[in-house]
């Protein structure tokens, strides 16, 4: 019953080699990821920042070179940039506001058991699985009076004089992509918040109800404080993500009509893709990055206070 085991005391494998092995092992596992990320993301990031100080346009191949802050001066004077900035604000705020509150409502509904909950959950989360380009096309079609019902409904309830495409109306066109974005984004918030809700211990609610708390008090005194850290971090990440999310706008309006719906990220894409002006695209991107970083700092500061409060 004895087992012959290889108990040779580290023959051939010396101590130094083994120590080295312990040290190197994690880097071996990490190296493919690091190399890939460095080459495809970090190097281009640095290169991209340098573009903002050069003149690089594939349409004017002879006018290349360092230009200092000329691109930023151009940015300051660019009316379209300011328009896109305003739009970015409304686009992000509008999308986020409705995504969040409708998502929270959905999460609260789904947090209580009812007959058919599993099926309902699967159905309401479905938009999340629809690729963004398809959501964009789909909603563009729904807003089209030729094949879509929405303009006819709006006309029927008196919001519009006659069925017309809001995407063709510079004053309202931004609402098209926002609605699509809300549709697309509710499930994300609902999923995150539902997971957070389900991690709140049941006994807390039971203790609160024994202590005499009403439903509303339970919500404000237990649910909200518990969700607050999740909410802060989710809202922050989501804001950044939405501000960067150009697909819906590019697909639904292409920034039009008359450049009225560009947000900064869609403006970056059009500048790089249509005009092939890489330098100016990078300048726009840096402006967006700075704004988002400032925003993230702000939220993280706020979150610190929130977490302390619990």
């Amino acid at each position: 019953m004895t087992m012959a085991l290889p108990t040779s005391p580290g023959k051939g494998r010396g101590r130094p080699l083994k120590k080295l092995h312990w040290l190197v092992e994690p880097y071996l596992y990490l190296s493919p990821a690091i190399i890939l990320i460095a080459l495809v993301m970090l190097v281009p990031l640095v290169v991209g920042i340098s573009y903002a100080f050069q003149s690089i346009s594939l349409l004017n191949p002879f006018e290349t070179g360092w230009v200092g802050f000329a691109n930023f001066e151009k940015l300051w004077a660019d009316r379209l940039f300011w328009k896109a900035l305003t739009n970015t604000f409304w686009w992000t705020l509008g999308s986020l506001f409705f995504q969040f509150f409708l998502g929270l409502g959905l999460a609260l509904l789904l947090n209580r058991p009812f007959a058919g909950r599993g099926l309902v959950q699967a159905l309401v989360f479905l938009p999340w699985a629809v690729p963004a380009f398809l959501s964009g096309l789909n909603w563009a079609w729904l807003f089209n009076p030729i094949i879509g019902p929405i303009p006819h409904w709006l006309a029927a309830i008196g919001i519009m004089d006659e069925p017309q495409n809001i995407l063709a109306n510079p004053k309202m066109a931004l609402w098209g992509p926002i609605v699509a974005n809300i549709w697309f984004g509710i499930p994300f918030f609902a999923i995150t918040l539902l997971a957070a809700l389900q991690s709140i211990p049941r006994d807390l609610y039971e203790a609160a109800s024994i202590d005499g708390a009403s439903v509303w008090q339970s919500f404000t005194k237990i649910t909200v404080p518990f969700l607050a850290p999740t909410i802060a971090i989710t809202v922050m990440l989501r804001t950044i993500w939405i501000a960067n999310f150009a697909d819906l706008i590019y697909i639904m309006t292409g920034g039009g009509p008359a450049n009225s719906t560009h947000i900064i990220s869609s403006y970056i894409f059009t500048t790089a893709f249509r005009r092939l002006d890489f330098a100016y695209a990078s300048t726009l991107a840096i402006a967006l990055l700075v704004l988002l970083l400032a925003y993230a700092m702000l939220i993280l500061q706020m979150r610190k206070h929130l977490v302390k409060g619990i």
Binding site: I37, M41, V47, Y51, A281, L292
Partner: peptide, 23 residues
């Protein structure tokens, strides 16, 4: 390394669309 990975999640990917095209 974790911080670098997080940074890649923060900046607008469109920022590198031009450099990537050239590379």
């Amino acid at each position: 390394i974790i911080a670098l990975m997080l940074i890649t999640q923060m900046f607008p990917l469109l920022m590198i669309i031009a450099p990537i095209y050239k590379i």
